[in-house]
């Protein structure tokens, strides 16, 4: 089964981290990514630019509406994702628990729909 692991964190909390903290965090992410790659679980994964770069688009009555910012203002923002291959939800959860941001933010675990 494939699972999308969505990484949410409050960007304001992120901004208060020191450079040293950021280096340590980066190293943790590198190690985590390497470990799921070597375990054959990794399909894709990326970090996203902050929400201030987001544009939200809707088409209503044939008109395209664009707004600056994310589709909803939330306390924590989507900051990145991993797409992984896991045996079942427990397996996916145990991968999610090792994402460094799990300790400070939230990881939403979503199974990918299978069309048969």
């Amino acid at each position: 089964m494939q699972f999308l692991l969505l990484i949410y964190e409050s960007e304001s909390a992120q901004a208060t981290r020191t450079e040293g903290d950021n280096h340590a965090m980066f190293a943790e992410y590198m190690a985590f990514t390497a470990s799921i790659k070597s375990a054959g679980k990794m399909i894709a994964g990326d970090a996203l630019q902050p929400v201030e770069t987001a544009t939200t688009l809707r088409i209503r009555d044939g008109k395209t509406l664009m707004t600056d910012g994310p589709f909803a203002e939330t306390k924590e923002q989507l900051g990145g994702y991993y797409l992984v291959e896991a045996n079942d939800l427990d397996d996916a959860l145990s991968i999610a628990a090792r994402i460094p941001t799990a300790k400070t933010g939230s990881i939403e675990v979503r199974p990918v729909m299978v069309w048969t």
């Binding site: 089964m1 699972f3 896991a86 045996n87 079942d88 939800l89 427990d90 397996d91 996916a92 199974p111």
Partner: peptide, 10 residues
């Protein structure tokens, strides 16, 4: 069923 909650003893 859809989220893949396993039938297993942890």
């Amino acid at each position: 069923r859809d989220a893949g909650v396993p039938y297993r003893v942890p």
